[in-house]
Structure formats: structure tokens, C-alpha cells
Design a protein around this nucleic acid. Structure first.
Length: 475
RNA sequence: GUCCCCAUCGUCUAGAGGCCUAGGACGCCACCCUUUCACGGUGGAAACAGGGGUUCGACUCCCCUUGGGGAUACCA
């Protein structure tokens, strides 16, 4: 019989939620959902030195924003399991798969240096793996501190069938008797993950392929403890523009920074899943569609480069799909970054402008740029020399249209467009000669939505004020 | 250095021996639409790293080379 699938995301709380970690979490969750299994999150906080509460919170924030928190909402902390770890080490000591090593750190360093000079792989030479019980007792009596090391086979190889990478074989000569328990009695990472994953009944270990080299070590621990070895799935890493592991230099790594940049969580998830996985020609893929189709064996083996251009495009697609109310709600905080809430008038104008703004936006921050003119009352300041030029050249039409508008009562975008068209026809002018200066008078810039949309959003009174004010200024 | 992994347009990818004259998407270019900027539409340039095999037939399988990445801790 097969156990129900259980996957886990296991970040260490030493910083923000990394974009690569987010994808690991995403794939772990997708696979669990696909198989009807469970997905959990375990915070690997055994490194007390580097772990911080702030980092724990930051990781939770990132996960929550992307809706990648654990299924049951409960975060497991590795430190809560430490007793199991030391217990496991003692069990291994007892059954002969581990031993006490009294070699001092300085001696280890020297060993490594020598190996490097000889051009060999630096590894522990196992000098204490066969100490006699008498020697051990003697050293312990003297109070020499010891670490517990695993006793690995000296030959042969370790093999596993990786769900994404395929068969991987590593010669045991490449491995050394690594430390299980430090001389201060604390467990090391490899011991802890194995014990925890077994304890939590994890069936599929999905993680970045920078863990491939840890896998044979962990398999030996599973075997020494008589535990079932889970399925491993090593995802290719995400690289930055420079082809190297994603870093702050090559692109943003903090997931929350993407929120600040105006990306939607759904589009970031969509983008992330397309890195190394896909559904044929489909680009816009919902979470549920992905759950339906996701298979670990379909994941690519090669690393991929993070491309902001495509993320921008995808985000724009998601923005276009949103309804105006939700979209306005998402956009609103970006107008209030400085802490001042949007005025009622501004909020009203912006929400009326949604249809006009939507097709031109790629990030939520784009709304702020284009809708600046909604934030204040009265005549806008002119953006640049070009705007000034256009406005002074077109004052005649600004005045003319203002007169026509004054008699208009129906202030819907469609009928306003009609008024503008009629005015153009009657005045014999070409559209740009009218539209551009009016746009400038209304918004201060030449790059703005259609005149009808602007007028409609601003309302009659404010529109005429802006146009009229200009008339006075000019006189 | 040693070990492991990877290799299709600039980027993300489709491709499981003949369907490939290598498909899609982003980006780029051109044209169309147009009330600026966008959106949208149409079209275009753009790739199987190289060399050997295997096979009637290789993008697809094997080997080598090259290139790239990752790992090499009493960190996780």
C-alpha cells in the first residue's frame, strides 16, 4: 500500500523568503494538491545564531502573500523536535552506524588543508572511526570533547531515482564520515532533516538541486535508522541575468519586494511555475489548472533565468482579467504609500478611470503614475516643456471646447467623446490640435488616457475649473 | 582541484526516432488600428553548442569535447 503524499517546504529563518524558495514551496504545494495529499511548512531554526523572529515573520508574510502557507495553517519549528534528533544519534551510536570522534577542530583544518594541497577532495579521514572501547573511555575520562560521526561504507555507491533528475549515483568514496551531533551536543542539518521528515511522514522531499550532494548522506541516515527513504525531487535553480544563482545583484530575491513593485501574487505564482514547468503552449495558468496538470516528472532539469519582461507582461494580463472593484482595492494602497489616505474625490475619479487605465498597466504602480492628475483639485502643473508648448499653441481650442462642454449635462464618457467629436467637426480642426492641449490642461501631461475618459472621471465642475482656470491664466 | 547536475531562438519553453521547412510566449523590428501613450491585429528576424557513433532515418538514443551551473563545514 502507498502512503498518502505529504510534501513540505523547509526554509531556514535567516532572512526573507527567497524567490527560489517561493518556487520550491509552490511546487511542493502543487504536487501535494495534485495527488490529494498534504503540504506543510517546517521552519528550520536549529541554527540559533542566525535564526531570528523577524525572519520567521518575513517568511510567513511572503508565504501568506502568495497563498503558499501550510495546509493546516500550522508552522512546525525544527527546534521543537531536537530531542528526537539526539535520540536518533544515540540510537546510531548504539547500533554501530555512528561513532564518537575526538579530533579537535584545528586538527580537522590541517587535514583539510593537506588534502587540498594534494589536490584531493577535502574530507575527514576517519581516524577515530575504529577507536577501541578503552581508547574511547580514556578520552572521555580526560574530558576531551567529541562529535558524533556517521560510519559510512568505504566503497560501493549510493543510488536513488530522483523524481525530476532521474537516476543519480554517487560513489561512497566521495562521502566522508560527516558529523551528526556537534561537540556541544546539537544536531547538524543532515541529521535533523532526516529525523524530521521521517517523524512528519514526508513522502516527497522537494527542494532545490543544490541539495543533491546532501541526498546520499541523508539516505545513509535513513538506512542506519531503519526508516523508509522518501522520494526526492530536486528542482533546478533559478538564475539571474548573469546566469548565476539568483542574488540581490542580479534581481530581487525577496518575495515581498515583488509585492512592493506592484506585482499580483497570482501572476508571480504563474510566472514561477512556468520556470521549469509548463502546460504546452499555455502561458496564463491558474493555480487550479496547475494543480490539475502538475507532475514532478514534467519538471525540467536545467536552470532557468528570471526574466522581468515576461513577468511584467504576465502581470499585465492578470490586471486585465480583474474586475474593477478588486483592481481598485489592489491599487489603492499604492496611492497611500506615504500614509495619507486617498481623498473621496480622488478615489472616485480613480475608480471611474479603471477601464481606461487597465489596458496600459503592467504593474499596480503604473496606475499611480498615470492617475496623478486625479489626486488634486484645480489646474495641474505642467510636466515638461513639450506640455507647455502644446498648451499655449492650443489655447483657442481649450477655450472653445470648454464652452461646448459647459452646455453638456450628460457627463458619461461616451457622450463626452461625442461632444469632443462634434466640436472638432464644427471647428474644422484636426483631432490632435484639440485633444492634446485639452489633455494637457486637464492632466498636465501629454501622455494620458482618452479625453472623454479624463473628463468623465474628473466630473463637470472640476473639468471646467481646470479648463477655465487655464483660460484665465492665459488672459 | 574533486564530485554531481545541466545544455532547443536573447529569455521562458514545446518536442519522448520519421508529424520539424523545429511550434508557442516574452522581448525586439515592421505595418495596420488609433485621440497622445498604451491595448489589440497582422507579419518578420531569431535556436537544436561541436564532433563522433547507433539507425533506413536523429533535436530526440550512446560516447567524447566544449560551455554553464551547483556542491564540496562540528551552515542550513
Amino acid at each position: 500500500m502507498t502512503k498518502p503524499v505529504k510534501t513540505r517546504f523547509a526554509p531556514s529563518p535567516t532572512g526573507m523568503l527567497h524567490i527560489g524558495g517561493a518556487r520550491t514551496a509552490l511546487f511542493s504545494k502543487l504536487y501535494a494538491k495534485h495527488t490529494g495529499g498534504e503540504y506543510v511548512v517546517r521552519i528550520e531554526d536549529t541554527d540559533r545564531e542566525r535564526s531570528t523572529q523577524a525572519a520567521v515573520d518575513a517568511i510567513k508574510d511572503g508565504l501568506n502573500w502568495l497563498d503558499l502557507g501550510p495546509d493546516n495553517g500550522q508552522y512546525v519549528f525544527q527546534t521543537s523536535l531536537v530531542e528526537k534528533h539526539t535520540e536518533a544519534a544515540h540510537q546510531m551510536l548504539k547500533n554501530g552506524t555512528a561513532y564518537k570522534c575526538f579530533v579537535a577542530p584545528e586538527e580537522l583544518d590541517a587535514m583539510r588543508k593537506e588534502a587540498e594541497e594534494r589536490g584531493e577532495m577535502p574530507k575527514y579521514d576517519g581516524r577515530h572511526r575504529d577507536l577501541t572501547p578503552e581508547q574511547i573511555d580514556d578520552l572521555e575520562a580526560k574530558g576531551v570533547p567529541f562529535a558524533v560521526r556517521i560510519k559510512l561504507p568505504l566503497d560501493g555507491s549510493t543510488v536513488w531515482e530522483d523524481a525530476v533528475q532521474g537516476r543519480i549515483e554517487i560513489a561512497n568514496t566521495q562521502l566522508d564520515d560527516f558529523v551528526l551531533l556537534r561537540s556541544d551536543g546539537t544536531p547538524t542539518y543532515n541529521l535533523a532533516v532526516v529525523v524530521d521528515d521521517a517523524e512528519m511522514d514526508i513522502t516527497h522531499v522537494i527542494r532545490g538541486d543544490d541539495h543533491i550532494n546532501n541526498t546520499p548522506k541523508q539516505i545513509h541516515i535513513y538506512e542506519a535508522l531503519g526508516l523508509d527513504v522518501p522520494t526526492f525531487a530536486h528542482l533546478p535553480l533559478i538564475h539571474g541575468k548573469d546566469g548565476k544563482k539568483l542574488s540581490k545583484r542580479t534581481g530581487s530575491v525577496d518575495v515581498m519586494h515583488y509585492k512592493d513593485m506592484g506585482y499580483l501574487p497570482a501572476s508571480l505564482n504563474n510566472y514561477l511555475m512556468r520556470l521549469g514547468w509548463g502546460m504546452g503552449d499555455k502561458e496564463v495558468i491558474s493555480f487550479n489548472e496547475a494543480v490539475e496538470a502538475f507532475e514532478l516528472t514534467d519538471v525540467n532539469k536545467g536552470a532557468s533565468i528570471f526574466d522581468f519582461d515576461k513577468l511584467d507582461w504576465l502581470n499585465g494580463e492578470y490586471i486585465k482579467q480583474m474586475n474593477n472593484n478588486d483592481l481598485f482595492a489592489s491599487v489603492k494602497p499604492f496611492f497611500e504609500l506615504d500614509g495619507t489616505p486617498l481623498s473621496e474625490a480622488a478615489a472616485d475619479r480613480i475608480s471611474k478611470l479603471m477601464d481606461a487605465l487597465k489596458p496600459r498597466a503592467r504593474r499596480l504602480t503604473d496606475f499611480v503614475d498615470v492617475a496623478q492628475f486625479c489626486l488634486f483639485d484645480g489646474r495641474p502643473g505642467l510636466a515638461d516643456a513639450k506640455a507647455e508648448e502644446v498648451l499655449s499653441a492650443g489655447m483657442e481650442h481649450v477655450n472653445g471646447l470648454a464652452d461646448a462642454l459647459d452646455m453638456q449635462d450628460d457627463w458619461s464618457e461616451a457622450s463626452l467623446d461625442g461632444v469632443v467629436k462634434t466640436y472638432i467637426k464644427e471647428s474644422g480642426a484636426k483631432f490632435p490640435a484639440v485633444g492634446m492641449p485639452v489633455r494637457v490642461a486637464l492632466t498636465g501631461t501629454t501622455q494620458a488616457p482618452s479625453v472623454g475618459a479624463i473628463l468623465s472621471a474628473l466630473g463637470k465642475e472640476e473639468s471646467l475649473k481646470r479648463l477655465g482656470h487655464n483660460i484665465e491664466m492665459e488672459r
